[in-house]
Amino acid sequence: MTAKPSLFPSVGRVLVYGVLLLAAAFFLLPLYAMLVTSFKDAEEIRTTSLLALPGGLNWSAWSTAWSSACTGVDCNGLRPFFWNSVTMAVPAVLISTLWGALNGYVLSLWKFRGSDVLFGLLLFGVFMPFQVVLLPMSQVLGMLGLSSSITGLVLVHCLAGLAGTTLFFRNYYAAIPKELVNAARMDGANFWQIFWRIVLPLSTPIFMVTLIWQFTNIWNDFLFGVVFSGTESKPITVGLNNLANTSSSVKAYNVDMAAAIIAGLPTMAIYVLAGKFFVRGLTAGAVKG
């Protein structure tokens, strides 16, 4: 006779769930504190505890952070910085991802003499500190006439992310059967036809991983943003830093918290909406090659 399943979870499972809930609460506590503070006015911040709920949903701090908070001598809020980041991140993510896919395709399925050596040299970019390339990159941008521009930032992020995206796609494509590519070549398909019609349709998992990874890195980058941007091209991370460090008679913690959440909303939204695809892509890459 088979034993009937218990209506109550085992002690071990309860302990595991308890530890996970505690870890999640500990991880989300700073976000909770930021969120409740952003809805409080100055009086509530002074008279209530950090974790106390606000008396109501007061959106004034959010409006100020978005459109009228001072970031140095400029008092237009985070709005221009936000759209600078959008203008920079979207093309940089798409270009670096497609570029990495093409590199991975060549280095795994169209190998040539020295391709493994080239791939090994390219991997230096994954481990190289970005501070090392600041001076030569600034010289290159100056020679190209792209200094202090969003186009220059796009180029910098494409080059900085190329080693990582190539690594992702090369390892993923290494598991594609060579017979599939050889059969397509025998049927008359050329380099680009195989790439667009055969390889890319198989690449959805790794594409999702790379897009999310690149968007997170580029959107949250501060180093390149503060070094290579100009007055009109600063990304949101630089704007947030300027807002938080702008001195005033009374520190507006609610505005700072609202601004920080606004700066992090796109990446949070990406992981909430596409997190399952990220996990699937990582799992698919983990069992290949």
Rank of each mutant, 00 (worst) to 15 (best):
W99S: 05
K251V: 13
P80K: 02
I45F: 08
L243F: 01
P5I: 11
M128A: 12
N76F: 00
G125D: 03
L35P: 11
F169E: 07
M137C: 06
F82S: 06
T37R: 00
A189L: 07
C70D: 03
G281P: 06
S67R: 03
A183C: 12
Y172L: 14
L153C: 09
V73E: 10
A286F: 04
A160G: 04
V226M: 11
L121S: 13
V126M: 02
W192D: 10
G230C: 15
F39E: 14
F8Q: 04
L35T: 08
P80M: 02
S148L: 01
N84G: 07
F222Q: 06
L57C: 13
S67W: 00
Y172W: 05
V117L: 13
P9H: 02
Q193P: 14
P177W: 15
I270K: 07
L134H: 02
V287A: 14
G264L: 03
N84W: 03
F278G: 13
E179W: 10
D256Q: 09
V156H: 06
S249Y: 08
M186G: 14
L141S: 05
F191V: 12
T267I: 01
A101N: 12
V272K: 04
E44L: 05
A101H: 11
F207D: 15
S49Y: 12
M257K: 07
G164R: 14
S248L: 11
L243C: 07
G285Y: 03
P266F: 05
R46E: 14
F191A: 10
S63V: 10
L135V: 11
N254F: 01
R197Q: 15
F195M: 01
F228D: 09
L162K: 10
V117C: 13
V86N: 00
A163T: 03
L167I: 14
L118Y: 07
N76Y: 11
L7C: 12
S96Q: 14
E43F: 08
V250K: 02
V272R: 15
D74Y: 04
I218R: 03
P266G: 10
I194T: 06
K40F: 10
Y32K: 03
L50M: 07
L167F: 08
V279I: 03
S60E: 08
V73F: 15
G125N: 04
F119I: 15
A244F: 08
G114Q: 06
Q139E: 11
N171D: 00
I176V: 05
V226Q: 13
V238Y: 02
T48Y: 09
L31R: 07
M1H: 09
F127S: 11
L240T: 01
S63H: 10
Y105V: 11
Y17C: 13
L211P: 07
F169N: 11
L265F: 01
T87W: 13
W110M: 11
R46T: 08
L180S: 09
L123P: 08
L7T: 12
S148P: 05
G275F: 15
G230N: 02
M1L: 09
